[in-house]
């Protein structure tokens, strides 16, 4: 009989190929330590969900190995499923059941019955703020309520590892923040290991202890958000001229300090500084020497989007749109 194993996730050379399609996951190596929140960041179609499906035993890998909670995802699927909870994008709720009935189903399937079931259901409904809506059919739930119920369902059996596949997509700011607080609490207070996929930079930045950036099925960067930003990206200076005719003059001055970049205000000029410690005072002096009048001057700290840009040559937002046409989920699996 096995004793409790470490709450870690490990993958080595994980590959998933689909018939008539590209490699959705192309040799991923990763390790998530116990109690860590690991953010898996990437655009649509990058391979995030496919990776989660393999780690949660929903999809067998074409090649490579992975262990979750110390169990092999291919050979020890039942043990993996006992140790994990998962809230996935495509796992639907049943419109004919209420929130409480969903919890009844989930608890029963995990062998939790009787008084313990009622107690656990009430506790989780309270925790996700669905006590009042518990006896309503879920077809009347909002997107946020469905996500919260989904999280409650994933937690029914007190999993040691939690997989959240884009848990806040489509949520309003309030629901998103509440979910972040709960996920943070689970990791910090209950020691749950969290594997979180997201396409939101802010989510990865706020929640994750470490971030893996995935693009075209490969991890292109990995580390703490702070380290990734410090290693790769430099600060950006954004200047807004007082009059539009001075835009050219501002651009020529700023280009001496770095490469012009886009994605900022419509009337502004922005450059990513060539060195990590770009000297703002020098920039101000150069602009003054040219007699340029500015209405605004800002320095932006590097973001994970800058990291993504540095690694892939594209911005994260919208990067996956062109790949969305052939969603990886619709492709048939190739014969291994």
């Amino acid at each position: 009989m096995d004793g409790p194993r470490e709450n870690s996730i490990e993958a080595h050379g994980l590959v998933r190929e689909f018939k008539k399609g590209p490699r959705a996951v192309d040799g991923i190596d990763l390790r998530v330590d116990p109690g860590e929140i690991y953010g898996f960041l990437g655009p649509n179609g990058a391979g995030k969900s496919t990776t989660v499906h393999m780690l949660t035993t929903l999809l067998p890998p074409t090649a490579g190995t992975a262990t979750v909670a110390g169990y092999d995802v291919v050979k020890e699927g039942p043990q993996v499923r006992k140790a994990i909870g998962a809230a996935l994008q495509e796992a639907a709720l049943d419109p004919f059941l209420t929130g409480r009935e969903h919890l009844r189903l989930q608890t029963t399937m995990h062998g939790i019955t009787g008084e313990e079931r009622s107690k656990r259901s009430d506790e989780l409904l309270t925790r996700v703020g669905l006590t009042e809506a518990a006896d309503r059919k879920v077809k009347g739930y909002s997107g946020g309520m469905k996500r919260r119920l989904d999280l409650a369902l994933a937690l029914v059996h007190r999993p040691r590892i939690l997989f959240l596949d884009e848990p806040t997509t489509g949520l309003d700011v309030q629901s998103r923040t509440a979910l972040w607080v709960e996920v943070g609490r689970l990791a910090k207070e209950e020691g749950v290991t969290v594997f979180l996929t997201t396409q939101y930079l802010e989510e990865a930045d706020v929640l994750a202890d470490r971030v893996g950036i995935i693009d075209h099925g490969r991890i292109v960067a990995e580390g703490t958000p702070e380290k990734l930003k410090a290693d790769i990206a430099c600060s950006t200076v954004e200047a807004v001229p007082a009059t539009p005719d001075q835009r050219g003059a501002v651009a020529s001055v700023l280009e001496r300090f770095g490469e012009q970049t886009t994605g900022y205000g419509p009337g502004s000029v922005a450059v990513q500084l060539a060195s990590a410690n770009g000297n703002l005072a020098e920039i101000v002096r150069a602009l003054d020497a040219e007699g340029v009048v500015l209405s605004q001057l800002q320095i932006h700290e590097p973001t994970l989007d800058d990291v993504f840009l540095a690694k892939t040559g594209r911005h994260l937002e919208g990067a996956g749109d062109e790949e969305e046409q052939d969603s990886e989920q619709d492709l048939e699996p190739a014969r291994a």
Partner: peptide, 17 residues
């Protein structure tokens, strides 16, 4: 079709059940 089977497959330690 609705995706509910995925929930069952995930929640079921033993899928023969």
């Amino acid at each position: 079709e609705t995706g509910f089977m995925r929930r069952l497959m995930l929640a079921a330690p033993n899928r023969s059940g």
